[in-house]
């Protein structure tokens, strides 16, 4: 399952062949580099590639070089298909049913009050929020809290996201894109407010278009911890396509 949902790669050097199981739609650039290095380190030439795409199919390649070329080709084809799935453009506070966002920005300053923030999230922003903590050791962004207002998550999926990395969403590409937004705010230290037009693929469901305005902002740090908060409002009047 980890190959089907997270884009990790399973490799094995067996007596018969080098075996690689890969989901080209999800695999990350770094995983792909790791695979190329692993291939270069092996002996033997014959490679069996298991490709996950609505079930598994297998291809046998006579050499490592051809296998590498084939894998890069499979991944590139998927990348072309997902280009343009996640679009965003800067939103104006005035245009984005601004009051709750403005209140949130005001509350998340140095005198941040948890109770008031929770009230704004619940009553002004339909409980659509994600609270993320930077783990200083690993540099990962960990989801520490999540509102119940997000549609599309099954109960089990929600539980698996909590305490995990922000990138590990049921749609991993979407998770990486969301993670990029958090990291941008982390780097710049200023809130990000944007309109989003995203096509999200939840496992087992048809791709669905989600339109919303999102605010990502740093929350005042205490005890040296770094926290970020993302909140969003669904809006039917966004069209970035």
């Amino acid at each position: 399952p980890i190959l089907e949902t997270r884009g990790w790669i399973l490799v094995e050097n067996s007596a018969i062949a080098l075996k690689i199981d890969i989901n080209p739609a999800l695999v990350s650039e770094k995983a792909l580099c790791g695979l190329i290095y692993w291939l270069a380190d092996q002996e033997g030439e014959r490679v069996i590639i298991g490709v996950c795409d609505d079930g598994w199919s297998h291809e046998v390649l006579p050499s490592r070089r051809l296998a590498q070329r084939r894998i890069v080709e499979l991944v590139s084809a998927c990348r072309r298909n997902r280009d343009g799935r996640f679009l965003a453009s800067s939103a104006e506070l005035a245009a984005a049913r601004a009051a709750p966002f403005r209140a949130l920005i005001a509350e998340c300053g140095p005198t941040a009050d948890r109770g008031r923030i929770a009230d704004i999230l619940r009553n002004g922003l339909a409980d659509r929020y994600t609270a993320v903590r930077l783990d200083p050791g690993s540099g990962e962004l960990i989801v520490e809290g999540m509102g119940e207002g997000y549609r599309g998550y099954a109960a089990g999926q929600r539980a698996s996201i909590l305490n995990g990395r922000v990138e590990d969403q049921p749609d991993y590409d979407y998770g990486r894109w969301v993670g990029d937004g958090f990291r941008q705010v982390l780097k710049q230290g200023t809130p990000l407010l944007e309109d989003v037009d995203a096509i999200i693929n939840w496992p087992g469901a048809e791709p669905r278009r989600h339109l919303y305005t999102r605010l990502v902002l740093p929350i005042a740090r205490k005890k040296g911890e770094t926290w970020l908060l993302s909140a969003s409002l669904e809006r039917s009047d966004i069209d970035l396509r």
Binding site: I2, R6, G7, W8, I9, L10, V11, E12, N13, V27, S28, K30, A31, L32, C33, G34, L35, Y37, W38, E167, Y172
Partner: peptide, 14 residues
């Protein structure tokens, strides 16, 4: 021996 390559490109034992 089977190994996993994670999304950071690290090899992990399976």
């Amino acid at each position: 021996e089977s190994l996993l390559i994670d999304d950071e490109g690290r090899l992990r034992k399976y």
